[in-house]
Nucleic acid binder design. Sequence first.
DNA 1: TATCACTGTCATAAGTCTGTCATAATTACA
DNA 2: TGTAATTATGACAGACTTATGACAGTGATA
Lengths: 227, 227
Amino acid sequence: MQPYVLIVEDEDSLATLLEYNFEKEGYEVGIARDGEEALLLAAERTPDIILMDWMLPKLSGVEACRRLRRREETQTTPIIMLTARGDETDRITGLDYGADDYIVKPFSIPELFARTRALLRRAKPSLLQDVIRQGDIEIDTKAFRVKCGDTPIHLGPTEFRLLDYFIRNPGRVFSREQLLDAVWGRDVYVEARTVDVHVGRLRKALKKNGKTDPIRTVRSAGYAFEA
Amino acid sequence: MQPYVLIVEDEDSLATLLEYNFEKEGYEVGIARDGEEALLLAAERTPDIILMDWMLPKLSGVEACRRLRRREETQTTPIIMLTARGDETDRITGLDYGADDYIVKPFSIPELFARTRALLRRAKPSLLQDVIRQGDIEIDTKAFRVKCGDTPIHLGPTEFRLLDYFIRNPGRVFSREQLLDAVWGRDVYVEARTVDVHVGRLRKALKKNGKTDPIRTVRSAGYAFEA
DNA sequence: TATCACTGTCATAAGTCTGTCATAATTACA
DNA sequence: TGTAATTATGACAGACTTATGACAGTGATA
């Protein structure tokens, strides 16, 4: 799954530039124009990392940062502050407002990428990994390959994304709605029962290999993946 | 084989930036935070080239450099010194401490690449070869020639660039958009489906030789090259 | 100017995948 | 044990993706 980066920046040209570059680099990108919008977007879908301008309309970057930290979902989400040279550099360097890193404008895009990756590696290493393993199942997200033990397994696109999501969140139970949101996308209208069918297909594909079923059905709750 | 570059730099942000850029450029990267660690890492695996900060904790760059020169394996390993403007420039320019080149901070990444390549070309030309092989396919990027096994293969310019890109990134799946960006160029407007056609032509050209199709179609994702 | 190689687009055919439904199987609980 | 609720599964039509041959336009070259 691609990392989701939330960019909070009121200056249009910079926002567009960042969006373009991050998309190119393989991130999914959300853009907020001010602090309030940032809080909204972050609530809708928890970002994997946040880039936030220091100076923002309505709600300053610092304040937005504080509020994000108060929410459980974004408590540990890495935040990089974008600051102009003059911005109270002392306090920034202290990073006492809850950001994990800061970068002074003008900055180079590769440097921003580098820092982003560094933070992601610390916070969510699985997002940057090409190969993820759980038990004897292994998926290579760059090569789009799945292996169970030594035998390669063919999955359709949806089953692949489903397994990818499961394997990154092992043990956790997801409702059908949650799976639809995460795997199909938030604005796709699909019958919830369809999840059953795809879980079934995924099971069948994985089971061919004999091993035990790695997907647990939780009655009246959903499904969970266990190694 | 990718060249292995050892980066010796104590400042985190610069180390991360360099790591990111060199990895992206296709190098394998090792990072040491001080002179002692550098000696250890270099002993573990002999680098093809070393980038070393002039000022380092524990063991200065100059001293680390000397000691590396005393070891047989690293006696001729190219070393580039990274220096701040103030650092005893005279002695550096003399390069009498055993480095092969130096570069003054702040430097541009492309410039660093250029010097790195220059030194590598002198020390280990085979690492920068123009001829790339994957399986029984061989392309000579300088001469624009392709061979499959022993039979020479004729490709049009686009197919050649496509194969060149594929062969440098074996195993990885690229979307049609990514391929357009990488092979056609960023600001060329071409239908995404055109990629299909060229992949088809490339396949046809390579298959003439009988062998199995080296390009894998990944439904709803793109194409990948496998040896 | 005629020829030639190359490119991008399109139409069509072939092949896969998807979502839904009906029905069977399983589970929880009175 | 019986019943209601929930889940598993096979079948299927339709939607979507990809492969491929044809073709016209371009520019280079003789």
